[in-house]
Every structure is written in structure tokens, then in C-alpha cells.
């Protein structure tokens, strides 16, 4: 098929298509290579890296819910030093945009992460995680308040020339306030949504099911919330939006473009169907061609013009 341009440019982040593997669902890009070539993706957002190694939360860390998944992994990761030594060199042959997702527990942590990674040549963008609901300090706390969100984004902005994506939490009263703060502080793009805080109780033991008591809900169950937040944010901010939340088929992806997303993330769907990115890319292209669109930009935000 020809005639439809799938490429996406967000500042210096160039992607051959608008599909990004969501952070936390794809390891450091190494896991799914036996099933899907990494080149099928426009980009891969790696699992969150923090300054120091983290063991994460006690099990159970997962609970499947209707059309959804609660998780409370707790940002388990090897830490920045081991990430650079053991994983970063392999990013050279990823054949896709490599987006390193960073988090921390203070503004200084984010500064340190940004300045440490700024000179790495095999990174295409940084995604700033101010939205993880499964850690006690930092994480979502930064993303719940416009001032602290701006402070973190600004700290990263001042320490890197890499394209900067701010990943926002849906667990806020007004997502547009946080999005505006992040964009104002220098984010080149906004990704939303991270998971919604939820919980499940085991009726046999009569105790919270997850080791962390609460978890983050993902999957199709959260999709309407995500679409609404992309739609609202598109009206309020000028930077591109990477929309995510329960996308499992191309129809879902199209919905996000129409709401205002310039690119989309696929996360939990990979678990059930590793071929999701291939199928979704084909579906988007067929949809666009059938309607005579020549580029993805023709679709973005179209739901607002009606």
C-alpha cells in the first residue's frame, strides 16, 4: 500500500509510524523481539529507570479485572548505572526510536537522570514519569500538582537537549491544568494516560488482593477515560499528545487520533496479543486510505471540528 504517510515528527523525535510501546509493558525492548521485530514500532518507551536500583513491590503484583489489569510492580528496575552498562549499548540496533522513561523521588533525581543521559547517542527521547501510582513517594505525587509537575519538567528541560515527553497521571481533578503546566515548563509532548488508581479485594481472605494494596488499572476498561482526557487536553495545549489507555485494536487507535493524539501508545494489549502493533498499523493505514487521507495529520483532532 502506498499513498498514506504514517511518519510522525515530534521535535527531534522522528518515528516511522505513530505506534509506541508503552513504558513498563515492553521491558527494555528485548523481550518481544522473537515475536515482533522492533522495527514494527515507531518507538519503544523503555521500562522506567530510576537513579538507584529498585526491587519493586511484594507479590501479588497483578490482578486481572473486567477488560482490564491492575498492576503494582513498583518500578522494579536495575538503576541508572546498570541500565547504562547492560542495556543501553543494545539500543544501537533497535531500528526504532528509543524513548527512555525516567523517574525519581526528588527534583534533583530527575536532574541527575536527564544530565546523565543527555549525551547518549542511542537515545531518541526522554519520557518523564511523574505518574506512577505504585510508589510511596515521588511518582504520581509530582504529577498531581501543576507546580511540582512544572518543576520536574523544567529540571529535565534544563539538563537535556533530547526531546522531552511528560507522562501524566489521570488521577487528577483537571488533566488540562497539569498538561498546560508541563508544556509551559518545556515539554515537547505530553503522553497520557498512565494507569488509574484502583484496587481489588480477595473475598476469600477478605484482604486487599495486591501486595501493594492499590494498583494501577490499564486495559480497555480505562479507554473512555483516556479518550476524554486526550480530547480535553488537545483543546488546551499546543504540544503534540501521545494518547494511550486500553488500545487493543486499530479502531481504538483511530479514536485517539480523532480526539487529538498525534501518536499512540500500546501497552497492556501486547500481553494478550504480541502482534497488536502490526495489526493496528495495518488497520490505521487501511482506514486512512479508504477515506482518502494522505497523512496522519489529517486525522488528528478531527473530532473537534464537527
Amino acid at each position: 500500500m502506498t499513498g498514506f504517510d504514517m511518519a510522525v515528527k515530534i521535535k527531534g523525535l522522528h518515528m516511522k509510524n505513530p505506534l509506541i510501546a508503552c513504558s513498563g509493558t515492553y521491558g527494555f525492548g528485548e523481550i518481544y523481539r522473537d515475536y515482533v521485530p522492533t522495527s514494527a514500532w515507531g518507538g519503544i518507551a523503555l521500562k522506567t529507570v530510576t537513579p538507584k536500583p529498585r526491587a519493586g513491590n511484594p507479590v501479588p503484583r497483578l490482578r486481572e479485572t473486567p477488560a482490564g489489569l491492575l498492576n503494582a510492580i513498583g518500578l522494579e528496575n536495575p538503576g541508572l548505572k546498570a541500565f547504562r552498562q547492560s542495556y543501553l549499548p543494545a539500543m544501537d540496533d533497535m531500528k526504532t526510536a528509543v524513548i527512555v522513561n525516567i523517574s525519581g523521588f526528588s527534583v534533583d533525581d530527575f536532574k541527575y537522570m536527564a544530565s546523565s543521559l543527555d549525551q547518549e547517542t542511542n537515545i531518541d527521547a526522554l519520557e518523564v514519569n511523574i505518574s506512577c501510582p505504585n510508589i510511596k513517594h515521588g511518582g504520581m505525587q509530582f504529577g498531581s500538582d501543576p507546580e511540582s509537575a512544572a518543576a520536574v519538567v523544567r529540571a529535565v528541560r534544563e539538563n537535556t537537549y533530547l526531546p522531552l515527553i511528560a507522562k501524566l497521571s489521570p488521577n487528577v481533578t483537571d488533566i488540562t491544568v497539569i498538561a498546560k503546566a508541563a508544556a509551559g515548563a518545556g515539554a515537547d509532548a505530553i503522553s497520557l494516560i498512565n494507569t488509574l488508581v484502583g484496587m481489588s479485594i480477595d473475598i476469600d481472605t477478605q484482604k486487599p488482593f495486591l501486595g501493594n494494596t492499590t494498583g494501577g488499572l490499564s486495559g480497555p476498561a480505562v479507554r473512555p477515560v483516556a479518550v476524554r482526557m486526550v480530547y480535553q487536553t488537545y483543546k488546551e495545549v499546543d504540544v503534540p499528545i501521545i494518547g494511550m489507555g486500553g488500545i487493543t485494536g486499530w479502531q481504538d487507535a483511530v479514536e485517539f487520533f480523532l480526539a487529538g493524539a498525534s501518536a499512540i501508545g500500546i501497552g497492556t494489549a501486547n500481553f494478550g496479543n504480541p502482534l497488536a502493533p502490526v495489526e493496528i498499523a495495518q488497520g490505521i493505514e487501511a482506514y486512512a486510505l479508504a477515506r482518502g487521507y494522505s497523512s496522519l495529520a489529517d486525522l488528528v483532532g478531527k473530532a473537534h471540528s464537527n
Binding site: G56, R61, L62, N270
Partner: peptide, 27 residues
């Protein structure tokens, strides 16, 4: 046995505790 999501090692949902080389604990 542990609850799994991806089954491939990507999500780190199904960890158990193991002795590491230095006498500590790893997942």
C-alpha cells in the same frame, strides 16, 4: 506458580525471591 500478565518477562509481575551471588536477595 504466580499470577502472570505477559508470560515473557516484560512486565515483571510474577516475581519470586531468590538468593543472589552476594548473599542478598534478588527477584
Amino acid at each position: 506458580e504466580e499470577y502472570m500478565a505477559c508470560g515473557l518477562g516484560a512486565c515483571r509481575g510474577c516475581v519470586c525471591r531468590l538468593k543472589d551471588e552476594t548473599g542478598g536477595v534478588k527477584h
